[in-house]
Nucleic acid binder design. Structure first.
Length: 374
RNA sequence: GCGACUGUAGCUCAGCGGUAGAGCUCUCGGUUGUGGUCCGAGUGGUCGCGGGUUCGAGCCCCGUCAGUCGCC
């Protein structure tokens, strides 16, 4: 069985379609909840599915260190291990090495580093990253890259991008021919148009099953990110999925989809769910704020998630203050539900050719802000 | 009844001659290819009470009240 990407409709630059895989379809634009350590924190897999997620993201870096890719392979692969039988996309490990590990050393060959867990030494090369992601059983494998930091000079960005392109070729070579599995290349080049173009050309000449925009949402701010997407997205092949890595807030997502992005992932809804930050159609709400302590109303009266149907703001406030585990469970569920509802709204609007109206409503409701205190 | 020790922010404590600090709490803000994290800002004290010494006292002296422990 093989994979395919079909575009069903476009509206301006925005697109909607389906990525078909042996493990099921992925409706695009898609938001992928992040399940770093073989779990979407605070959520049961069936609950993640119930929010509307078609695909999860898992992390090479974390899983190679614990419990190790070889152990997951012996136990039947990541899907069986974590009880998620739908598609999984795995990050290549490059970003986490740079953001989490100590004593990193980057060479032409790859990256050596010390584990943030026990200090043990490890190396990831493009070849090793492909092997790990194969052992995990990943459906969508990401090429090994270096996420260029921001800010950086043009010269640094260029050097970093070209290294990632050489690694992209090695990733392609090491990945081989694996029917039913996809390999995505990652465009770099920071915020520089000429570098983004050179990177896109390099990736296209190698040929991938999908193309990611990397190196954004790393501190440049939303305006700069969207300005970069204005030119970067269109450089990537129109007939393949385009994945914006690590994004983002709801308004980032709307802005990215508007510019032709098909897939995104972000820790925000799940991490926020554990830190009392709620995301709703009306914006961001901090459930720890004292104004909720006597409020019997749901977080969002129009939301159909189990949290909003069954629990009050006062209860959410209380369990966060008391640091009860159910706090993260309830709010993560709501946040993921909201994100998936947003994606469905985007897909429907693009399909109906009403993206602009959807976007206007989206911003108008957020501008109103959260419901007034009691 | 006697002795020792202790009384400083809501809590736990530091400061021991130059007109008060920390952590937590509390009130908020932040978190974008995840370490249930971390970062940032703010509110908050007649230093148990009353005298005294000193230019100046949480800090030294006297008294007093309260608590803890020990002894009778």
């Amino acid at each position: 069985m093989s994979t395919s990407f079909t575009l069903d409709a476009t509206d301006g630059m925005a697109r909607t379609g389906v990525i078909s895989t042996p493990r099921g379809d992925i409706r695009t634009p898609a938001f992928m909840p992040v399940g770093t350590a073989a779990t979407v924190k605070a959520m049961m897999p069936e609950s993640v599915r119930a929010t509307g997620a078609d695909i999860l993201l898992g992390n090479t870096y974390h899983l190679m260190l614990r419990p190790t890719a070889e152990r997951i392979d012996r136990l039947g692969g990541l899907h069986k291990f974590m009880n998620w039988d739908r598609p999984i996309l795995t990050d290549s490990g490059g970003f986490q090495v740079m953001s989490l590990a100590a004593l990193r050393k980057l060479t032409e060959s790859g990256v050596t580093f010390k584990s943030h867990i026990d200090g043990s030494r490890h190396e990831i090369t493009p070849e090793r990253s492909m092997e790990i992601q194969r052992l995990l059983g990943s459906d969508i494998v990401m090429a090994f890259d270096e996420c260029t930091p921001y800010p950086c000079t043009e010269a640094q960005a260029l050097e970093s991008m070209r290294l990632s392109m050489r690694w992209a070729q090695r990733s392609r070579d090491a990945f081989g021919d694996r029917p039913g599995h996809m390999l995505f290349g990652i465009q770099q080049g920071s915020v520089f148009a000429d570098q983004r173009a050179e990177s896109a050309e390099a990736l296209k000449s190698i040929s991938f099953d999908g193309y990611a925009v990397g190196g954004l949402a790393v501190g440049e701010g939303q305006e700069m990110m969207l300005r970069t997407l204005d030119f970067a997205t269109d450089m990537l092949p129109a007939d393949k999925p385009r994945y914006l890595m690590g994004v983002g807030k709801p308004d980032d997502i709307v802005g990215a989809v508007k510019r032709g992005i098909d897939m995104m992932d972000c820790v925000l809804p799940s991490r926020s769910g554990r830190t009392a930050q709620a995301w709703t159609r009306r914006g961001q709400v901090n459930m720890k704020n004292a104004r909720h302590q006597d409020d019997p109303r749901p977080l969002d009266e129009d939301c159909t998630c189990p949290t909003c149907r069954q629990y009050s703001r006062a209860y959410l406030h209380h369990v966060f203050r008391a640091q009860e585990m159910i706090s993260g469970m309830l709010l993560t569920w709501h946040n993921l539900h909201y994100y998936q509802e947003l994606m469905q709204g985007l897909r429907d609007a693009i399909g109906a050719g009403t993206f602009e109206a959807f976007e206007a409503r989206f911003h108008a409701l957020r501008a109103e802000g959260d419901i007034a205190p009691l």
